[in-house]
């Protein structure tokens, strides 16, 4: 069973209760920040800030539009971070949460490069750092609770449940919304499908969602090369052994010729 979250951006009002609840449950420190050009703060996610509400205020056709986008781990069905992790520290759990085992992580940071959403964040400021990201509150959901952000969301913008049911709900809301929603469940196909999904009433390019992300399964990008390794090695072996046989034969022939000449 895959759990997930459906984030209905039309309901998010940017109160940032989720941001605080996340820090509270996960015991993350407040960061030193300063005022930005809009209200997003901390202005970037970090090892100490796993989710933020990203504010975007714009003027569209003479009218002001403001959107609030909850950012954070998408909990991919086929996580790139898991596939590239050298140590097997990142694991997609049976319930859909993608988690990091800090005891296994060696700190190669390949997951940071691999994640198409830029999710994992590292404690660069520590001598013994950890890779951090949203765990879908694996500890809570394993005990039958909702993730902290979903539990605290006052407007019901963050829904937690089984992914299939949430996907059906998302499609139902879009279908029954009389055009209120953009006809796109973000996360249904993005990065090959994610457990965290979004629906929105404003065009997605007015949100801070990564609309340019691939819809392919990201682990496949490297796997297509990795799966050819046996053939590559076999080819190299055949080439080497064949050449060696040829070289030996030629050396023998040359030696015989020489020997014959002298004889």
């Amino acid at each position: 069973m895959t759990y997930g979250m459906l984030i209905d951006l039309s309901k998010c009002m940017g109160c940032r209760g989720c941001q605080v609840a996340c820090k509270q449950w996960n015991d993350l420190p407040g960061e030193e920040t300063s005022l930005g050009t809009d209200f997003t703060n901390p202005q970037k996610r970090s090892a100490y800030t796993w989710t933020t509400i990203d504010f975007l205020t714009a003027e569209v056709n003479g009218r002001t539009v403001a959107t609030f986008t909850k950012s954070g781990c998408m909990h991919c069905l086929e996580p790139a971070c898991e596939s590239v992790c050298i140590a097997g520290a990142i694991k997609r759990q049976e319930n859909g949460a993608v988690t990091i085992d800090h005891d296994k992580c060696i700190g190669c940071r390949y997951c940071q490069l691999g994640c198409p959403f830029g999710v994992p964040k590292y404690e660069y400021d520590k001598p013994v750092p950890r890779m951090q990201k949203c765990t879908l509150c694996y500890d809570r959901i394993s005990e039958g609770l909702e993730p902290a952000c979903a539990a605290t969301c006052p407007s019901g913008a963050i829904l937690f449940g089984e992914r299939e049911e949430l996907l059906a709900l998302a499609k139902q809301r879009i279908a029954e919304g009389n055009g209120r929603y953009v006809d796109h469940v973000y996360g249904e196909h993005e990065a090959g499908g994610t457990a965290v999904m979004y629906i929105s009433s404003v065009p997605l390019d007015l949100t801070t969602l990564n609309t340019g992300v691939t819809t392919e399964s990201v682990p496949g990008f490297t796997w297509k090369a990795m799966r050819q390794l046996p053939a590559l090695v076999g080819g190299a072996a055949v080439l080497s052994l064949g050449l060696m046989a040829y070289s030996n034969r030629r050396a023998r022939l040359e030696a015989e010729q020489k020997g014959g000449g002298e004889a």
Binding site: K23, G30, E32, F39, P42
Partner: peptide, 26 residues
């Protein structure tokens, strides 16, 4: 007022989780 602070900020301006979201007067 803004969501992140409460009234004169007597309580919220000493809470790091709230302060980091709305650190500065503007």
């Amino acid at each position: 007022r803004v969501t992140e602070h409460w009234q004169s900020g007597a309580m919220t301006r000493s809470l790091p989780w709230l302060g980091e979201m709305m650190p500065d007067m503007f």
